[in-house]
Design a protein around this nucleic acid. Sequence first.
DNA 1: CTATTATTCAATGGTATTATTGAATTATAG
DNA 2: CTATAATTCAATAATACCATTGAATAATAG
Lengths: 242, 242
Amino acid sequence: MRTSPSGTTDLEKREFKDRLYAEFARVGRALASPHRLELLDVLAQGERSVEELASEAALSIANASQHLRALHQAHLVEMRREGSRVYYRLGSPEVFALWQSLQSTAEARLAEIDRVTTTFLSRREEMEAVGPEELRRRLEDDDITVLDVRPALEYRQGHIAGAISLPLEELETRLAELPPGRQIVAYCRGPYCVYADEAVETLSRHGRSASRLVIGYPDWAASGLPIAVGVGGGSSPSRSGA
Amino acid sequence: MRTSPSGTTDLEKREFKDRLYAEFARVGRALASPHRLELLDVLAQGERSVEELASEAALSIANASQHLRALHQAHLVEMRREGSRVYYRLGSPEVFALWQSLQSTAEARLAEIDRVTTTFLSRREEMEAVGPEELRRRLEDDDITVLDVRPALEYRQGHIAGAISLPLEELETRLAELPPGRQIVAYCRGPYCVYADEAVETLSRHGRSASRLVIGYPDWAASGLPIAVGVGGGSSPSRSGA
DNA sequence: CTATTATTCAATGGTATTATTGAATTATAG
DNA sequence: CTATAATTCAATAATACCATTGAATAATAG
């Protein structure tokens, strides 16, 4: 009973398709839980131990461990043992691209996301925002001070080349360290992260001219813009793509 | 009890994050079922009625309808009523990009997909394959005959500019219609579709020099390469991006 | 209006996921 | 070797999802 000209029956084709889509769905399943998406989002900043991940995503250790296991089985994250700790990281840059694609699709299609963000991030409307291309240009012209307001650890794991680390929590006490007069652009983890918003607000309150970068560090790095790794506050930009 | 310098409590931030990731997970959930992924894949070829979708994906009507409803609630597909039928289509090109990203992530990360495809598509190894850029060049040089071996309906809904429609089922009986002497490149629905493989095999058996395009029509169209819509076999290439 | 076709809705068991708990590993320190 | 810390595993109950069935709705034809 062949309807196709070649040596495969319809039944075999159906079995092939079923297996193929089942495999793709394994990845889809991994994206089906809010907690796992949040873990992916945290991991986009760099590798983290189970404990750090659990705390960052407000999960119990055991729960975080299980979700990480699910992500690992879908091969979206990899792990590495160091002493008594296990560190997880994204499996590849493609995984971040997938997460980005999911975000932008959802953003474009779900009005609810608009509603959630505008009620919470309403002040963002009034803030000036800078796109990545504009920032790159102004960085090249040395026209601007770029501020990484994420926790220092995340800055060390990778930051925009030329950016200064000034974690949000220390911003108010260390304002004097900022070169005076220059415009400031703050950035943080991603488009939905509020650190940069709060930094801009604080800076404005102290009479500084500040705006926020519309994307976060992982997006910047993924699009191949210049980044740096390590402690150096860095006026020596190194280039490294994704 | 504020730990942040601005006017939002940690609790409010957590609620914001929870709601945000819950919304993203709504899209993720929609990608968690093999059947829904297959429906998306079919819809990437063009809009379809519930009945067509059910038959193509080997589902009962009621089941297909429910899965389509789930996709619709995630805003990944849109629908349109025409008489007594309801036609579904992808919500936007971004949805296809998401599906592509899921596929390529899964392909890169899941060795199982390799195993499934190589056991079923083993003959593909021995076949010549042409990439999209090479095909575009050779189309411009009019060096080649491009064959769309999908069902005629799908050709009508959109095809590679300059391609001839010759559904796989009719290939053997209509071989004479093919311009003699020229090399042939066949394509079908996507990288995992077997129509083109079978066409190449049939053509080779009849002494024709044939190879397959490594991607399918939706991928071609999504990357902005020239396409055409309608019945015309078309030597008048129209351009339409995604 | 009635019959027919296409689709959706609602209810049903069956199955799979989820968060929690507490025990079991794995590695380090003493 | 023992104690401790970090993580994973295993078992559990609550929940959510799934495919099927049959009834309900929408649109068309007669």
